[in-house]
Amino acid sequence: MIRHLLSGGDLDAGTATEILDTAAEMATVAGREVKKLPALRGRTVVNLFYEDSTRTRISFEAAAKRLSADVINFSAKGSSVTKGESLKDTALTLQAMGADAVVVRHPASGAPHRLANWLDGSVVNAGDGTHEHPTQALLDAYTMRARLGRLAGLHVAIVGDVLHSRVARSNVLLLSTLGAKVTLVGPPTLIPVDWAARAGVGSAATDADPGTDVCYDLDAVLPGVDVVMMLRVQRERMNDSYFPSAREYARRYGLDGPRLRRLPEHAIVMHPGPMNRGMEITPEVADSPRSTIVEQVANGVSVRMAVLYLLLGGNNR
């Protein structure tokens, strides 16, 4: 059993499937009158958030509370962090408070890995810099499996700012582990150079990474995919010359009605949120029945319950 969840790459196919299966059981709790399970009674989960992300924090908080864990929210604002306490000192403080798990969101890539060196408890990466966000990938996989019945053999297009996206990194790792094929789509400036070089743009996937390839043409990809995952594109990227204008970006890589109709009938549209309506996705698409955006939020709680249970539900030291 894994001790920390730091990367989508920490999970082998068996463990990932176990998390998804467990999440499916956890999901039934949401439909019950008593939305609570006693499994983590007496355990303490700390939400250590160095970045504002109300949705992710609330999702973890709901997950921990449904499993009867005690939850301590520790946000960088209004704590000693703003007075310059180091991550290590914060870790030692949490350790002394008896944290069994620390859920950490941090603007620096790898901060959860550093934290894991200093804590006896489990560390869950809730998004680190431009690195990873493994529970988002798990809830995305859960949503795909729930909607399409399987993951193996699915073709998933991840569209947008792949370079800066922790969601994309975690999804690439997890989806390839679970047998799906991923095509990364976006302007070449927003695709990491080595992925583009390795995958061979526009060509079939290579031996180096049979599950992933790269394409710069969204319209060419759409007719052959089962899932389109749109990534949030920050307008600030425009000022750093990643693309000329929001309008040009939306025209080339935005998902609108006509593009939605190019998808196979069964294909679904995903977005990790929060959306830039009108930039990477039009309201028509976001609100269409093929969009799973609201489901993703609900599934997030179930998946995080599963992760917390698997990390804390037994004696895994």
């Binding site: 890539s109 790898g110 680190d128 810099g129 431009t130 690195h131 990194r169 990491p192 080595d194």
Partner: peptide, 12 residues
């Protein structure tokens, strides 16, 4: 900047 920086999400 290379395969490792991409994987680790660190600016190259």
């Amino acid at each position: 900047e290379g395969e490792v920086s991409t994987r680790l999400g660190l600016t190259g």
